[in-house]
Amino acid sequence: MAVNVDPIHQFELKPLVSLGHIGSQEIAFTQSALYMFAAVGVIALITIAATASRSVVPGRMQSLAEIFYEFIADTLHQATGDGGKKFMPLVFSLFMFVLILNLFGMIPYAFAVTSHLIITFGLAALVIGVVIGYGVMKHGSHFFGLFVPSGVPKPLLAILVPIEIISFVSRPISLSVRLFANVLAGHIAMKIFAFFVAALLSAGAWSVLSPLPLALTIALTALEFLVAALQAYVFATLTAIYLNDALHPGH
């Protein structure tokens, strides 16, 4: 009973191969890294192996790859227009990576890589880094016009510019925390309700109540599948919207 009660236990990193330390940091090939490479493998399977025949009339897996491609291409085009095409590999990779990792997390006993803030923050930082890097490279100092709303009287700018800067800086934080918190909270909730089922079953007469948390667990599982896909989509969409700022920094 006491073994898996802890709903946090599932988020622990288990080093498979320890590679030593850098300062206080432990460098190890963990199950998290294994899952990430497995996700890369699955994505490659869907998008590369399944399209190897280059059929004009696609099979199921090739259709799946095409659907993902067109979905992300549409999303990107709506957010950024024609100029955003060069970011297609980035947005597509982010979407597929987050989606597959989220779905991996839904497999019983599997590990949810996206439940670790540092992973989601790493991805969000990559997005913001690309936005700033591309914006400055393409538009130079004009890029920072992003923080200066046009048509606003000078005295107001003193207030508005800091607000704009804060909202820009909070983007990677909100982007990463949104995904992390959704996955984390969902997995904790599922774990707790599933635990209630076991706890009630072993509590004598109370066991008649056990179908209630079971039903909730099932409902939550369905919800978490939705969240898994939705958060991947939200991540990709927000990435596209932020990239639009790099492409068209005019306010």
Binding site: L13, Q25, E26, T30, L117, F180
Partner: peptide, 15 residues
């Protein structure tokens, strides 16, 4: 676990 900072570098590297 998600706030155990000593794993951050390793995770970022593999990421």
């Amino acid at each position: 676990p998600p706030f155990e900072t000593h794993t951050f570098l390793s995770q970022l590297i593999w990421l």
